[in-house]
């Protein structure tokens, strides 16, 4: 494992910890898109089916189990325990606009036409766009809590670092997965607008607020 991959994974881990910390400390899921969290839950469920078929390493298993369980826990917290604080009126992005194209694309463009590979490919495509309901929600309300901004920054950095990892693996290990790389680039590009706001506002100590 190279440093980009490790730091990428740690950013992903940090993002999820920040998200749970925000919910736990504020006792509220205000400002969070339940739809994005459902999509991420679906991403992990469809991607980590290999937990039961392939053992890679303790690190790999622990991370997969953590991502899987934390994403399911987040969905649970939003829709049951802290439902009263969930801002469903602003979480209006239609999930089927993402689910259907990702499913169709996974059936057409994959490494191997088998159920496991199609589900893995679906998870890669879906992860690339799963943050859109959250970004859409921020664009509707015009603001985000600082800890939610930190969460999004860590989450966006993770796939950006994976791109560096893929470049490294291409040059030094002759390994290249076109599906993961293209989807990863799309995923990272979706965060660019947010990265700009994060650097120019949140890091200057201001709350993330969109111009009216």
């Amino acid at each position: 494992m190279n440093a980009f991959r490790l730091v990428g994974d740690l950013c992903h881990l940090a993002a999820i910890v920040l998200l749970l910390l925000k919910i736990w400390k504020s006792r509220s899921v205000a400002g969070l898109s339940g739809k994005s969290q459902i999509l991420f839950g679906l991403v992990f469920v469809t991607r980590y089916l290999d937990l039961v078929t392939n053992f890679v390493s303790p690190y790999n298993t622990i991370m997969k189990v953590f991502f899987l369980s934390s994403s399911i826990a987040t969905v649970y917290l939003i829709y049951t325990k802290f439902k009263a604080t969930y801002d469903g009126n602003h979480d209006t992005f239609r999930m089927e606009f993402l689910l259907i194209p990702c499913a169709l694309l996974a059936i057409v463009v994959n490494h191997e036409f088998s159920p496991m590979e199609i589900l893995w490919t679906f998870s890669i495509y879906l992860e690339a766009v799963a943050i859109l309901p959250q970004l859409f929600m921020i664009s509707k309300t015009g603001e985000a809590e600082t800890i939610t901004s930190h969460y999004l920054f860590a989450l966006g950095s993770y796939r950006g670092l994976y791109i560096m990892n893929w470049l490294y693996r291409y040059y030094y290990e002759n390994n290249f997965d076109v599906i993961a790389v293209v989807a990863g680039i799309v995923q990272t590009v979706l965060y660019c607008d947010f990265f700009y706001l994060y650097i120019t506002k949140v890091l200057q100590g201001k709350k993330l607020q969109l111009p009216a």
């Binding site: 494992m1 991959r5 994974d9 992903h12 290999d50 392939n54 890679v56 390493s57 790999n60 991370m63 997969k64 991502f67 490494h111 191997e112 590979e117 893995w120 490919t121 994976y162 390994n175 997965d177 599906i179 993961a180």
Partner: peptide, 10 residues
């Protein structure tokens, strides 16, 4: 196998 994706990456 060769066609399979990398199960190590998260």
């Amino acid at each position: 196998d060769e066609l399979d994706h990398d199960h190590d990456e998260l």
